[in-house]
Computed example of a mutant assay.
Amino acid sequence: MPWPRRVDCVERPDRDLLRHGTNGEADDAMTGAVEQESLFLSELGRRVRHARTVRGLSRKLLSQTSGLSERYIAQLEGGQGNVSIILLRRVAGAMGVRLDDMITGSDAVPDWPVLRDLLGQASPDQIAAAKEALSGGVRSAGGPRPRVALVGLRGAGKSTLGRLAAERLGWPFVELNAEIERENALSVKEIFAIYGQEGYRRLEQAALRRLTEHSGPLILATSGGIVAEPLTYDLLLQAFFTIWLKARPEEHMQRVRDQGHLVTTGDHTSAMQELRAVLASREPLYARASATVDTSDVSVDTMVDRLTRTIEARFDGRQPQAG
């Protein structure tokens, strides 16, 4: 049975899709990127200078300890020029500072170094309790709510199978990207163009958080890349019974082609190599889902049967079965 052709599937756009704009748009994007890089270097220099002065180190002493010239340290603190990560690592090591604190900073959360050390010593139960408290306590009291989220690579069948399973169960069905578009009156492509990757991530997490407040049953289809956003994916795992729709790379590719959507440009060989690389990098994340339904080499009806049985087993009080 051929994979159903879909024309309304909404998926997070590949970065290649965002590269095709007018020359003016490209120039604006380049100008914005340069400004962001300049700001980053300035903030990095400020953090290095603060770390040095708070420890009572002169530039000369830091130069002797790190093996770098005073001139280089002065340029680094002044936010001038590019920065070698290796040399920055030497500066951080000479001051006894973590490299990630130099790069990202901890000013926004002054207690972050303490929290990080406490988390490093915490038990799994303590970490789970901390995550629940910090996420606003999205876990449901009195047993799991009948909320299901589908994850998987593009072409896994999240939208098609999710909609069919929802119809069979009599549950509402929601596509997360469609919800983001509805709430913001913009397409996903427009959101990326206006707000960028970080802006999309914020809107995605906000939309998901609102869906966690849904009291009744729900099947949610997510974007393939949601697993790469740690906070958003953890929220999903806490609030939803999450199912990984798993398939072989060849099936992913064929389904995407059948639907009229290509995951990448170029010839079939390079497209398959890219798809395999993405799948390999995401498999450990998809595997964190509560259940797995294998959709390889079976008909759509069989896929829906497997998915529906897994959902019913969970909310009938039995353990979910892998497909």
Results as ranks from 00 to 15, higher is better:
Thr295Ala: 10
Gly56Met: 05
Gln273Thr: 05
Glu179Ser: 02
Ala221Ser: 11
Asn177Ile: 02
Thr295Met: 08
Gly152Ser: 02
Arg168Ala: 13
Asp297Arg: 09
Arg209Asn: 09
Ala29Asp: 04
Ala74Leu: 03
Gly162Thr: 06
Leu134Val: 14
Asp8Ala: 01
Lys158Phe: 10
Leu119Arg: 00
Ala289Glu: 00
Ser296Ile: 09
Ala129Tyr: 00
Val97Ser: 15
Ser187Pro: 09
Gln321Glu: 12
Arg168Val: 12
Leu61Pro: 10
Leu62Thr: 14
Pro146Leu: 03
Gln254Ser: 00
Asp107Tyr: 14
Arg98Asp: 13
Phe40Arg: 14
Gly216Ala: 15
His214Ala: 01
Val227Arg: 03
Asp301Cys: 10
Arg282Trp: 07
Gln36Phe: 03
Asp316Ser: 05
Trp112Tyr: 13
Glu132Ala: 01
Gln121Thr: 08
Ser123Phe: 00
Arg314Trp: 07
Gly162Ala: 06
Asp316Met: 05
Ala287Met: 07
Tyr286Arg: 09
Ala221Asn: 01
Cys9His: 11
Glu250Pro: 11
Arg47Gly: 07
Met102Asn: 10
Glu251Leu: 12
Asp107Ser: 14
Thr104Cys: 15
Asp316Leu: 07
Thr53Asn: 13
Gly24Gln: 01
Trp3Lys: 10
Leu285Phe: 01
Asp234Arg: 12
Leu17Lys: 10
Lys60Leu: 12
Val174Leu: 11
Leu161Asn: 01
Ile85Glu: 03
Glu167Asn: 12
Glu213Arg: 08
Gln121Lys: 05
Gly32Arg: 10
Thr232Val: 03
Cys9Pro: 02
Ser63Cys: 03
Gly81His: 00
Gly323Asp: 04
Gln64Trp: 06
Gln64Cys: 07
Phe40Asp: 12
Val97His: 14
Val278Gly: 02
Ser270Gly: 06
Arg5Leu: 08
Val148Gly: 05
Arg6Pro: 11
Glu25Lys: 00
Gly136Gln: 03
Arg154Phe: 02
Cys9Trp: 11
Gly162Val: 06
Trp3Phe: 04
Arg55Ile: 02
Leu87Phe: 07
Leu88Tyr: 04
Thr292His: 03
Met303Tyr: 07
Arg49Pro: 01
Pro230Ile: 06
Pro113Gly: 12
Arg147Trp: 11
Arg46Gln: 13
Ser270Ile: 09
Val54Asn: 14
Asn177Pro: 03
Tyr195Arg: 09
Arg309Gly: 03
Gly81Ile: 05
Glu167Phe: 08
Gly78Val: 05
Ala228Asp: 13
Ile85Lys: 02
Val293Gly: 04
Thr232Lys: 00
Leu307Ala: 09
Arg19Trp: 13
Leu245Tyr: 00
Gln319Asn: 11
Ser281Val: 13
Gly136Pro: 02
Thr104Asn: 15
Ser140Val: 14
Pro4Ala: 03
Gly21Asn: 15
Leu208Cys: 05
Ser66Ala: 11
Leu41Phe: 12
Asp101Lys: 10
Thr53Val: 15
Asp294Val: 14
Gly24Leu: 02
Glu70Trp: 02
Ala178Tyr: 05
Ala122Met: 01
Arg52Asn: 04
Gly78Arg: 15
Asp258Arg: 14
Val91Asn: 12
Phe173Pro: 07
Ile103Pro: 06
Thr222His: 07
